[in-house]
Design a protein around this nucleic acid. Structure first.
Lengths: 231, 231
DNA sequence: GCAAAAGTGTTGTGTATACACCCATGG
DNA sequence: CCATGGGTGTATACACAACACTTTTGC
């Protein structure tokens, strides 16, 4: 049923041969936060770096493929994944349809050591292809925006964390300082946190309380309510 | 949205031969509002209906292709266009990568008369393919959500309109009534409107003032600021 | 006892909601 | 003069931003 052909008419390009077909290409922008820096996982070394990528797989959803791409190229399991944007581009004379994904992953011992993949500071990226740069640029835009109205930043932190660590993550991403009291009030009020009874002692100062977030709480995630009058 | 999972028709299909390549397919969900109903442009008749679609074109951005798809299949020029989501699906044994688009267009005299395309009430759609239904479902979700934090609804109205018409458009999309005074205060305060000095006389009651919106005012359109403290 | 980070409240300002009546017109 | 939709204001609740000091610990 899906085959109703339509008057598309425009196809001047590619004059001679049979129809050119685009290559479909998934690219994943995997973020983490370490040491107050926002990092991206890049495949290759600083000379020849690129976003982790792969082609689509029949009978597998794109989301699943993206998830596997991250796993294969980093050995890590991302905590949050979202499709970004799809763009058509010709590069090195290859026509590609690029489906961009954004992924978030906690910083952890293993996260640091990757084979074939390096973490690069977002503010100091190596030379990349135009398409990779576009995908990254958009991923950053979306990450920052989303931070405002969702709680995705939690996915960048380990299972338990202090409020200061959480705040640092926010500040790294936004590139701006936040007010401690307002931050805490807000994040507590939002109800996503669950206080453990543990503390972390570290340095000659008062120990910090550790929190988790509730698995449940990650609701619609991205809708903004509004116009929410009663009748 | 967080990882919108896609059901995948699990099938052994195509095991032996060389790599199967997906077909890329753009689909456009074009909305308008008429008579307090939210309508979608469908190609074909009620028996065999489908979303306007087309394949990608080399050296043309997907957005441009989508725009052209709308123009070709409806003869209309949409006022607002945005990419939605890309999904991989196998349907009728064809493996497709479907890129969904949402478009908004004002209701106008011409809008009514289309060749080969019909406007269907969102609440009374004919039978469509699974993929079309998914694209539409998502388009609706996004349209409603976006209405909350942007001004896209304006793109559904003709050049000049009364505040009541504008409010009706909102109510049609949201499927909910809004308070007249709050609605007006808000929309006026937002500054997107520009009062013309004309009025519309219609029926035995007080005539309504006509407004336009300023071309300029339709900024970033979809970002939500927040965490906007000073330092 | 001091350095260093953790933790804690109040106040003002703006924005969203709820709510009910008068106005201008055509017939 | 009446029916019909157009148009207007206020009081209350909540959310956000600004702002500074006390607490606990290790050394």
């Amino acid at each position: 049923m899906a085959t109703t052909e339509q008057p598309v008419t425009k196809e001047p390009v590619n004059s001679g041969r049979e129809a050119e077909t685009p290559r479909v290409d998934l690219r994943t922008v995997l973020f983490t936060v370490a040491d107050a820096k926002l990092l991206i996982a890049l495949h290759g070394n600083r000379e020849k770096a690129a976003l982790p990528r792969s082609g689509p797989v029949p009978n597998e959803s794109l989301d699943t493929t993206a998830r596997r791409t991250i796993r294969d190229s980093t050995g890590l399991q991302e905590q949050y994944l979202e499709q970004l944007y799809t763009l058509g581009i010709r590069e090195a004379n290859i026509w590609s349809i690029i489906v961009g994904y954004i992924g978030l992953i906690p910083l952890s011992p293993e996260t640091a050591a990757l084979s074939g993949t390096t973490w690069c500071d977002v503010n100091d990226l190596p030379k990349l292809s135009d398409s990779d740069e576009r995908v990254i640029e958009y991923a950053l835009l979306r990450l920052r925006a989303k931070l405002g109205y969702t709680n995705i930043a939690f996915h960048l932190l380990p299972r338990s964390f202090t409020l200061t660590e959480l705040q640092n993550a926010y500040e790294s991403i936004l590139g701006r300082r936040l007010d401690k009291r307002n931050f805490r009030r807000r994040v507590i009020a939002s109800g996503i946190l669950q206080g453990t009874n543990e503390q972390r002692r570290e340095g000659s100062h008062r120990p910090a309380a550790l929190y988790r977030f509730r698995a449940e709480h990650d609701p619609g995630d991205y809708l903004t309510p509004m116009w929410a009058e009663e009748a």
